[in-house]
Structures are given as C-alpha cells and as structure tokens.
Design a protein around this nucleic acid. Sequence first.
DNA 1: CGAATGTCTGAATCTATAC
DNA 2: GGTATAGATTCAGACATTC
Lengths: 366, 366
Amino acid sequence: MGVSVGTGLDLLLDQVMVGDCIDLMRRLPPASVHAIFADPPYNLQLKGDLRRPNDTLVDGVDDAWDRFDDLPSYDAFTRAWLTEARRVLRKDGTIWVMGSYHNVFRLGTALQDLGFWVLNDVIWRKSNPMPNFRGRRFTNAHETLIWAARGPESRYRFNYAAMKALNEEVQMRSDWFIPLCTGSERLRDDKGAKLHPTQKPEALLHRVILSCTAPGEVVLDPFLGTGTTAAVARRLGRRYIGLERDPGYAAAAMARIEAVEPLSETAALTTAGKREQPRIPFGHLVERGVVPPGSILVDRARRWSATVAADGSIRCGRAQGSIHQVGAAVQEAPSCNGWAFWHVEQPGGRLRLLDEYRVEALGSQG
Amino acid sequence: MGVSVGTGLDLLLDQVMVGDCIDLMRRLPPASVHAIFADPPYNLQLKGDLRRPNDTLVDGVDDAWDRFDDLPSYDAFTRAWLTEARRVLRKDGTIWVMGSYHNVFRLGTALQDLGFWVLNDVIWRKSNPMPNFRGRRFTNAHETLIWAARGPESRYRFNYAAMKALNEEVQMRSDWFIPLCTGSERLRDDKGAKLHPTQKPEALLHRVILSCTAPGEVVLDPFLGTGTTAAVARRLGRRYIGLERDPGYAAAAMARIEAVEPLSETAALTTAGKREQPRIPFGHLVERGVVPPGSILVDRARRWSATVAADGSIRCGRAQGSIHQVGAAVQEAPSCNGWAFWHVEQPGGRLRLLDEYRVEALGSQG
DNA sequence: CGAATGTCTGAATCTATAC
DNA sequence: GGTATAGATTCAGACATTC
C-alpha cells in the first residue's frame, strides 16, 4: 500500500499544480504514478489555443477551423502529452483516456502507436443526454473511455471482485450507465452559471478509480478541470496529482477537494478476490491436521478417490502429485484447481469441498 | 427513388462478386452508391488458447483473413479500401464502418484523414456477449459502428422519423441494444458448425439500412461475408452490391439472399432491438452518492446494522457481501431480498426502505 | 406434456508466482 | 529472464434432455 519514497514524488502528492501539463509532467519522476485519468480538450483552434467541445449547435457558428490543418496539430498535441504520461506511469500502471467521436479515434491511435496496450474501450452511456435538436443525427448519448496498460506485458491491476460487487455479483460490462453531472454536484458561480463546460460526474470517476487502484496509490490527472478526479480519489483514500492550465479552474478544484471528507478505511475497503488473499499450500492443512494424512479425497460425483500423503501430495491409482496435478491427470484435463475439485467425506456421508477448509484456515489466521 | 442509369452500374446491381474488394470497387463508377456498410477484419491478434472455467475451448477467430503483420500494414489496408469506397460513394451518401477496440481507432482515424465527416459513433450493445473468463478485464460487451458522410458539406440522408418510430417515438440514441446472431439465424454447415465466425445479426443491419437509405437505393458491402447486408437490403426493398473474397462465403451468401422475400413497402418498420428491462444494482446507488459508502443500513427492527463499502458490498460483523447475501446470512435464511430488508437511517430518526431509493433511481433514468 | 435441468456457445488482444 | 506450477475464472440464450 505504500508509495515509493525518496523519488521526490512525495512533495507533489495531493496537490493541484497550475500550468501546462506537459511541462508539469516533466517534473515528475519516471514510473511514479499508479493510474492516470485524462479528459483532454477535444479540439484545437487555429491559433493553437485549446478549445472545449462546445458543440456547433451551442455556439451557433460553423466550424471556423480547417479540419485538415487542425487534425495534425491535435495529433501532435496528443502525442506530446501521452508521451510524458507514459514516462511517469509505473510499469504496471494503467491509463484512462476519454473522448467523443470528434477526438477519440485520434486518442486511441496515438495510444497504440506509443506502445500502450488497450485493455477495454468503455462506453459511458448517459441517462440524460442532450437531444439532437435538428433531428439530423442519432442522439449522441455516450462518450468513450479507453483503458490501457503501459504495454502488452504489463501486469496491471484490475479489481475484478470489487467491480463485480458493484454490479450485484455479475461481471462488470464495458457499457456503463451513469447520469450526467447535474444538480447540486455541478459547480456554479454566483450567478448560477456552470463553472466548467464538461464537468464529469463523480460516479464515473468512482468506478474508474475503484477499478484499477488500491488505497494509498497515486492517481494523476493532467487535465484536472474543476477537480472531479482528485475529489473522488481523496474520498476513496487514494493520493492524487492534479494538473490544470486555467488558474480559475484550478482554484475551484482546490476549494472543492479541500471540502472532501475521506472515507473511513473500512468504508473505502472493497471486496477482495481470491487473487488478493494470501496463499495457503495444501500441505499446511495436512500438517495442521485439518486434513490429516490418510484422508480420502473424492470428486463431487465420487468418480475418483485419492489418498492424502504426509507431505501434502495425493495419490489416485498411478497418478501422484499435488491436488491440482492429480485432479488434472484423472480428468485428462490440461489443468485443474484442486481446491475446487476435491472433497472430503464427512461423518454424515456428506461431502465438503476442500476450498471450504482453506477459507476457514484463512479466517483463523487473521 | 430511381437509380442513376447509364453509368454501367445497373448491370452490377443485386449481385455478389467474388474477389478482392479493392479491385472490384475499381470497376464501379464513381459516386454511384448511396450507402456503404463495411465490417472489415478486426486484426484481433489472438495468441494462445482460451478456455472457459469448465475447461472447454473457446472457438476464437484465427482465420488467415484476420492476420496482419503489424499496425502499419493494417493501416495501409484500411486506407486503400476506404479510398476506393469514398470514390464510389455518392456525394450525399454515407458510410458505416464497424469494429472493436482492436481496430476501430485505426478505422476512425483513417476515415477522418481521408476527408469523411463523422456523424455519429454508434454502440452496438450486445445483450449476450461472451464473458471475460479470466476476470482480467471488463466484459467486452459492445462493438462500435462509425457513421460518416462523404464530407463536411454533405447533404446526407437520415430517416429521422423512421428511427424515432423504431424507438417507440423517442429519438433514437447512439447506443443500440441488440442480441448476437445465434440460433436459427446463424448459418451452419451440415455438421452444425458456424459457416462464418463473425456473422452479424440482421436486426443490426435492419436499423443501419433503414436509417440512411430509401427504397430502391443502392447499398454496397465490400466485406459481405455470408451476406447479412445484402439479405436485409433485399428484404427492405433496397438494391445491393456485395463483394467477398472467399468463394465459400460468397456462395453461402448468394443462396441466402436468393431465399429472402422482399417486404411490401409498408411492412418495413417492425423489427426493433431487444427491449431492456431496467435494472439498478445497489452498487450504482453507492457510486452515485444516493447511498454513499460508509452509510449504515439496518433492518426494520434495528436488530442488525451493516456498513456500506465503496464497491457496494456491505459488512455486518463477519458477514460480508451483497445486500442480499448479508441479509440472508444474519437471518440465517437461505435467501433474502436485500432491497426489502435493509433501511437507511433518516435525519429525523426515521427509517427509509432501500427499495424506495431503487424505485426513485429507476424513475429518473427513464 | 409441461416444467425443470443440463449442455453448448459467442469477433477474446483473458494469470501469477516461485524458482 | 525462462520455466514450472499453483490455482483463478462465466453470462445469456437457444436448444436438448429428463422428470
């Protein structure tokens, strides 16, 4: 759970820094953050200024910028910040990048070209999107998030059990149904005007951060805006680094983050999958007498039975070895999880799955 | 409604041509087709075998046509066929191109670079996708269709009213919920093996063709496969041109198309997507802050109390799991409807049933 | 014969740790 | 870094079979 120390990162944690994100990322040590969430500006204006995705309908003008000049400069900008992002991302960290059809293809292509390995594209389905007033297209009711590892061999974190718990014990899919950021969650000025045109809902960031980080790990947002990523990270007991060019947005973000009450450790805890739990070799159960040497193991249908040896190996006919190896051998399967295959005969003639003994042992050892 | 005559196109209508789609498109006159639907190879890059938890083997796409040396060669292929496609597309025609996260960013970037104007990205949400068996990613539950005009000034066709009618008189959104092509719709050989690894559902093409063409207009599919596009086009009273490299696929497509009975003009508006029953997992209320992490749940008699975790699981003493599981555990009952069992403490000391929050959330999401 | 149960399958970039 | 092995992992729908 600890953050690597001595890299100079500690001084920058839990802060919002004002400035160009590429310059600011250059100050961060390499391989220092566990996750990155980026909601970059969607298009560049001719002058090279950044522009938020004001739809043409909203500002009512024809696109003043020339697409053919503009896309290459947008690509150059994208590659520049993604290159720095990749440098500061830890070897086994992951990045989320978000966009709409205007820019998401550029983002995805740049990610792949730079060596990132796409894990999923996730669809944020908006429950309450703006309708298409002119009736000339389908209602643009979603945005796309690309989730990628630093490279194809990354051993990235995915909190599978937590995501499954969040979805009533069914695997979380790649399409997420989440309302827009409205009502009291939306930051406004004194006159009630939106402080930021594209403030993202906290529920979206909740799911993102919960899916790929552990408490205490560091989340970087290079386009922090009014601070949704940092606010949610803080609430969930994660560390954050927020970069934002606009001082007004940054100030609003700082005030907002300050007001966030971090969850208690127990509330921030999530369901641990079996992968996260300590391993118990079968031999330990044997030597503790939980499943003593000489016990008989059978499969559920009692097709095979095996004898437990004093060293934790088992024997079934000519097959001999670990519970996994023998389980695979008798079934002529390429592999087998012995814990979920073998059972112990109970006094009443009932069978008890080996895995239940392991769970019991896990509980008793704290 | 008429098709332009005298261009030499008439001789090629309502046919399946066998060969490389780039070569074949070169024979078509420029600006001759009203719509293009293209489902090109995805460049999946599968490595080893994948087995289900029950050790059965997943029948993946390992066909030669889906193998490319690297991303640059995939890009070159994409640009080559899209260039020809743009040449044969009428000035006011539109193109649909479909893919997954493996290739869709390359497709979208190529489309934009070649001058197409993206109108929507449409999400095909699969009602019954294959799960992620190893629990290492989100279930890949959708594919993306890019809908684009030939250029920014195109006066393209969008059958707004037809789409609205297909969607119970509300604007059609950019996310479509449609099942996979399975059961009797799936083409199979004598042994029951699927004829094509990636046959698309007719419901998907029904919506595509209905949205952007008029009866009598011409739909081109450069990657026809086993002919879904042509079959649906014929049923809907459109003309088609199907290109397919593999003679086996092409033969199957021809037989299939031959058997299609064109609909009368008025009968075209029936098949819709699958209707989705709204479902709210408890975790979604947690991440939306309706019942925030750290909340205390109690039963009606306040005999038990539980704490809500950030992933929507709850804890009560040693019991940990979903609202249903923990409700059952504390009562020592075989099952429990957590929605009807747990309550949230209100400011005034009153209790509010969890189910009321669920009903509220259901109402607000339409 | 209907209900209940079991089997099969789908565009899939599908493991982690110790030695 | 390569190799061996422990062991984690599935949802919906169509269809077949059994009770």
